[in-house]
Nucleic acid binder design. Structure first.
Lengths: 130, 130
DNA sequence: ATAATAATGATTACGATTATCATTTTAATT
DNA sequence: AATTAAAATGATAATCGTAATCATTATTAT
């Protein structure tokens, strides 16, 4: 059910978001069980752990390599269409004896909603100053 | 002194590493003061906050845009020489109404030391199996 | 010298994640 | 079916990095 909810949501859920969704179907499930199974599912490659620059880990229904954009205001994460960068990253034991495993690219920005809120706040502020 | 230690170290220090270094000169400084001043220094652009994929934030003596490689075993972070990716990332309000601010690229790997340890462990294990 | 402002140290609070552990569930074996 | 072993679960506590609080001290301006 944890897997189903993640795949159904088509979003990049945090553990507690998954917890809330699954609890609608399994009201007694504990947060620990959610964490444990998120771990299992990502180890199995059925979902993908996203350790991006913010504090909470997210889980991606898509397991293929791709990149993300994160809103620095509200934390929302979405996919972003940027070409695969494998060719730019050193391979194998390329870089000063490091064995390269993977890479992550995260774009930071402000999402349309937060942008809109910022603009209306600005306008309100100007109005009150008239 | 916090700034000095970060610049002197030429590493990518965590808050508690900075704390330990600074405490050698100011034994009574508190961790809170370190955190507060790390915040101030990065707001001033004198150091750069690194919010990479691991749990602890790091602070970079270099403020120019560049990328990092992190060891998934020991957490060590070093600079990595990859060309600037600004041209790949959408600009301004480019992507579905998002206002783009920045981007981070983090390469993951195993550092030479951890590689070496893994190899000697492997060797030990094989020897015990003889 | 005095008052206002800011910074500090000490401590607590917080939020995400992990660990523990007794209990329950599942699977395997008789 | 009954019995046993193994695994998963819920409840809870522990951990760890960071942020917030607050009384005290230091700095600055008047």
């Amino acid at each position: 059910m944890i897997l189903e909810e993640i795949q159904k949501s088509h979003r990049h859920l945090t553990a507690s978001e998954v917890y809330d969704l699954v609890r609608e179907r399994l009201p007694n499930i504990s947060l620990g069980t959610v964490y444990r199974n998120l771990e299992v599912l990502s180890d199995l490659g059925l979902i993908r752990r996203l350790d991006l620059g913010d504090t909470k880990r997210r889980y991606d229904f898509t397991t293929e390599k791709h990149y993300h954009i994160r809103c620095v205001k509200c934390g929302r994460v979405e996919d972003i269409d940027i070409e695969n960068l494998d060719s730019l990253c050193p391979k194998g034991d390329g870089d000063r004896g490091w064995r390269i495993i993977d890479h992550n690219l995260e774009v930071l920005g402000i999402c349309p909603e937060c942008n809109h809120n910022a603009n209306s706040n600005k306008q309100n502020k100007e109005e009150t100053h008239v």
